[in-house]
Simulated assay, not measured.
Amino acid sequence: MDALLKGEQAVLGAVLLDPAELDRLSWLMPADFYRPVHQALFAAMRTINARERPTREADGTVPMSWLTGTVAEAGRHVRGLSASYAHTLIAACPRPQNAPVYGRMVLEGSIHRTVTEHAIRLEHVARVDAEQQQVDGVLHHADVLADVLSDLASRWGTEPRPLAPPSTAAGLAQPTPMPVVPAQTEDEQFLLAVLVSQPSAMAEVYDWLRPGDFAEPGNGQVYRCLGALHHRGEPIDEVTALWEVQRRGLLADGTLSQEHLDRVFGGPGAGSAEWLGDRVIRSSVVRTAAGAATTIRGLAENEAMAPGRLIGQALHALGSLDEVRARWRTANNRLSPGAEKAGPPEPSAPAARVHAALARSSPRPATAKGVPSAAPLARSGTASPRRTSPSPHHRSVQ
């Protein structure tokens, strides 16, 4: 026995028995019903009630014209509807005064179906955009899904706010990552080769590109190492990059292989880091949207999930897309008029960074009779970049 079907029949039977119940169901829409015949009947009830305002007779019964008129109006939109089905609906309603409760059952089923449909649509668009290296379509459908969730929250009577899922969520399918296409891997390796070959290239992408934006985890780990060198003010080249990889144990634990590093460090190293970084973060936007859509779809297909929790956790899943989208917009708005008015950025000082790195690498002079020698020149006077407190987005790269 389908409880949702019984709920739809019960709410329609309650309204057939008492048209005044429609006033307590103003938040219920015809599209909330699953069966097309029920959609047509509820729409017909709303139309006739708005036009005629039928009421019960003195003996408590409703006029026969209310039933026949509803069936006739609905029959204009669906086929096979007969007056006998109206009596079936009346018999399916235990108590007409419980119409709002039956209506909430219908709305709950509608919320699960609606969220599932929009999540599937977002998944499909993400896969299409991944092939075309586009993000506009996936961002548009993500915004549509967010608006739908906010509207459903308002109708359900809850606040549309993100709700983190419990850490011990059982039975929840993990998002299946999108397959990595060869073009994405090539873009990432070309970018890493440029970052290693061109001393100033890292500054072009460091503020908005993150290791998690790389589709290939190994490439993301190499970028993390380069970001750590840049953050500490140390020079970036093949030798320092390889040393950082080895210090982090990425070769020993099998995260990276020498063959992988040879492909990265042996790349052409020619090109624009900004352009390649934009392609990498575009792919990250699409993959993040696809992952959020898969998560939301799994939530919506869980019939045991309460509507309020479903909406809150779906909004939380979209939060990861908001973060990467904000960074993508930062990457594409660097030359906006507002940025130009803010004044020129502080000039970079690669020589100072190299000097600080060399000072840290130099051994301290020997001490005499326990008296410590003077601190190296790079640590006296003006503070080196190493001592400057990094901003939050700088910390996240390491």
Rank of each mutant, 00 (worst) to 15 (best):
A50T: 07
H141E: 15
M64K: 10
A292N: 07
G291P: 03
M29K: 12
S389N: 14
D253I: 04
L299D: 07
T382F: 12
V205P: 10
G103Q: 01
N332K: 12
R113G: 01
A375Q: 13
T158K: 02
L16G: 00
I90C: 04
T70E: 03
E8H: 03
P392V: 09
S283Q: 11
R224Y: 06
Q39K: 08
G298R: 04
R353E: 14
E346Y: 10
G381K: 01
A375Y: 08
Q9T: 01
D253P: 05
A352I: 06
D18M: 00
Y102A: 00
V397L: 12
A193D: 07
P392Q: 11
P372D: 10
A289H: 05
A146G: 12
P385D: 10
F42A: 00
P307D: 05
D322T: 12
S154V: 11
G266A: 02
A43R: 11
T330C: 09
D262K: 13
P337N: 07
S389W: 15
G227I: 02
S396P: 08
L41G: 06
H141F: 15
Q189E: 15
F265T: 10
L163T: 07
A290L: 08
A292S: 11
P347K: 05
E159L: 12
H316R: 09
M202Q: 08
E274M: 10
N98Y: 15
V196G: 09
L191W: 06
I311E: 00
A126W: 02
V264K: 02
R334E: 14
L41H: 03
L172N: 09
A3K: 05
P217C: 01
L89K: 00
S84R: 12
H112F: 04
V245R: 07
G171W: 06
T116A: 15
P268Y: 15
V144F: 10
T61N: 03
T88E: 15
R247P: 03
P307R: 05
L139P: 04
S110C: 03
Y85C: 00
P344C: 09
S154Y: 11
G171D: 03
N98S: 15
A378E: 08
A241H: 08
A339P: 06
E244P: 02
E259C: 01
L25P: 02
P179Q: 10
D237I: 00
W275G: 14
T68W: 10
H260Y: 10
G267R: 03
M202D: 05
F265H: 08
H230R: 14
C225Q: 07
S391T: 14
Q134N: 11
D2H: 11
A193W: 06
S197A: 15
V138W: 05
S284K: 02
R329K: 11
H140K: 15
T158Y: 03
A142I: 08
P363Y: 09
A58E: 11
E108Y: 02
T388F: 13
F265G: 12
E301D: 13
R263T: 11
P165E: 06
S373R: 14
E238Q: 14
V62E: 00
D147Y: 09
M29I: 05
M45H: 01
A273S: 10
T367C: 10
V222G: 02
S283F: 06
